[in-house]
Design a protein around this nucleic acid. Structure first.
Lengths: 337, 337
DNA sequence: TGCTACCCTTGAATCGATTCAACTCGTTTC
DNA sequence: GAAACGAGTTGAATCGATTCAAGGGTAGCA
């Protein structure tokens, strides 16, 4: 463990530690020649700054935590990529935690990240983490919610307009002549799921004579989607819907997989299918999937930016940033025969 | 910033800081009643340990860095999930970096993580990072390569047997009656790509009368796969292959998308298609994709375990852990008409 | 009673970067 | 020539958890 400290650098360069620190942090407060000598010493010794010491002294850190709801979902990977791009540009590292839709893990990560003195927290919340987040905020550690807004607007959030998205989805289905719509999604504790459903209901009401039926799932995964698809297929033919709005693309792909495998209900002829998120695989699906696109990496970038602003100025009032989703029409919602 | 330190806890519990530290780290060296009083104080004050201070003092940290080649690839997400599971169980946090197949970013993350005093580094390497990793190792920070083995076995690695996988892929294609095989993959600097190709060539030679042609790509993405697919379609019909082995599922899905869209070459009738990794979306593809499954989350878990062992005992000799891939047959490699 | 052994507890020293009051030295101003 | 000023530099103090030599107390034993 041949650890090189600022002291070693100072010694080799023949200056004091204060000067070395200045070279690192306030280069213009130092004479060019000192700067050069110090730089040489740094290179020669292979000095690397000790973040722990810096963090300890300064009280704030160059680390941000990101607790993701479901790391398997490509949507979140895009968001992470966006946040991570932005972070890296500012020399900030991201601590990563995948809560896998389990409240226990979610809380564990939040605690872990707190110990690590993160500057702030990006959270795609699943369980009720707000009391924990409140506590963190009292200590000067802000949080920004990603992909959903907080119930009481107690925290800033960056998300897409899920109600409007749900509405667009059903409006589109109605446009292509569908009336009996199944909403596949869950758990209903997920705010984005209920919002998309709420939007769907509004559109159904506006259209009149359109029914929305909820087919609940336990998670937003391909497997759950496939299971829901099978349940629909099990019904007598005339009780089946003529369109499915899945709460996200993972579910939609699962449904699609079940339908294609089974073969009795062809997409889009007998049944139309629309998803949400427009993940990369939606276009490559068995039947290319109509979906509502989210500006995912922009969401990540924006969330990180807001987080850092709040970290710098704790007085800021929480604000909700909402992007509009965009309808991407593909084959899965072609007109019925 | 109402920061609560171990000193405050000690004061409230009426004991010394040393005792508090012992409660936290060596509970059996402390009397039950002290432990209880300290615990109460901790709860009452909402004390959270300051990792920075601990790290500084101990010299080692409870953080591990993971530099991923391509965060968009579900395969790596599975690996990350595995590593992350294992890490969390041990109270270790993971710093996450997505190099997006860019050597500059890759190096940046390694440097950033070094500043953060990571205990070790998991790396899915793209560019040549070995000299940097060597330097880190000299400082007691080990690295374990994920998803590929190091050229000179200078580092431990956890991967799948890509040569054997490539072989299995082509053997399977030959089994279902294919002879003119296109290998879609690249860049050829990626060791796993060339290994899979090498395996393919071995199988072709063993079979005799089987040709392998390389269709290079610039990255292992859906888009590049689609582009490669279009290039194949552009050829006169008789110059087209009767099977495609894509270096990974992303490429395979891209190829599939192009073929299905175009419609001239049906999968699997006119052309068979096999991928690698067996990501979750392979099963949900336009034509369910035959693929070679990797035990991805096990790879992540194992890599982390080895990394920590090496961090504890720097004398360990690097070892290569290789898992066998498993052939998952689906519709995309049905028999030709 | 004296002695040893054992169990807990104590608190100063430590890790390394940053900060800042104090200082040096050369230059400018009146 | 004295005073004021500015630019650079210095090094001790600081952040908070851990460590460990030293010491206090109690029980056990002769």
């Amino acid at each position: 463990m041949a650890s090189v400290s600022i002291r070693d650098v100072a010694h080799r360069a023949g200056v004091s530690v204060g000067t070395v620190s200045n070279v690192l942090n306030r280069p213009d407060a130092v004479s060019p020649e000192s700067a050069m000598r110090v730089q040489e010493a740094i290179d020669a010794l292979g000095y690397v700054r000790n973040e722990a010491a810096r963090k300890l002294r300064q009280g704030i850190s160059a680390t941000v935590g990101f607790v993701v709801l479901d790391g398997q979902n490509p949507y979140y990977n895009d968001v992470v990529r966006g946040a991570s791009d932005e972070a890296t540009q500012r020399g900030i590292a991201i601590l990563f935690g995948d809560s896998a839709e389990e409240p226990v893990r979610e809380r564990m990560y939040i605690d872990l990240f707190e110990e690590h003195q993160v500057r702030g927290l990006l959270v795609a919340p699943f369980g009720d983490v707000f009391s924990r987040l409140e506590r963190l905020r009292e200590r000067g550690v802000p949080a920004v919610l990603v992909g959903r807004y907080s119930g009481q607007n107690r925290f800033s959030s960056v998300s897409v307009d899920n109600i409007s998205g749900g509405r667009m989805a059903v409006e589109h289905l109605v446009d292509v002549g569908r009336r009996r719509i199944a909403f596949v999604g869950g758990p209903l504790e997920l705010r984005e799921v209920t919002d998309r459903l709420a939007g769907a209901r509004i559109a159904a009401e506006d259209a009149g004579n359109v029914g929305i039926e909820v087919v609940p799932t336990n998670a937003t995964t391909v497997e759950e989607g496939a299971a829901a698809g099978l349940r629909l297929l099990d019904r007598p033919a005339r009780e089946r819907p003529d369109a499915i709005f899945a709460a996200n693309d993972l579910l939609a792909l699962g449904v699609l997989q079940a339908l294609v495998e089974d073969g009795r209900m062809r997409v889009p002829e007998e049944i139309a299918l629309i998803g949400f998120d427009d993940i990369a695989f939606a276009a490559a699906a068995a039947v290319p999937l109509t979906s509502l696109r989210q500006p995912s990496s922009t969401i990540g970038k924006t969330a990180l930016r807001i987080l850092l602003e709040e970290a710098d100025d704790p007085g800021l009032i929480p604000r909700q940033t909402v992007f509009q989703p965009e309808l991407i029409v593909r084959r899965s919602t072609g007109r019925p025969t």
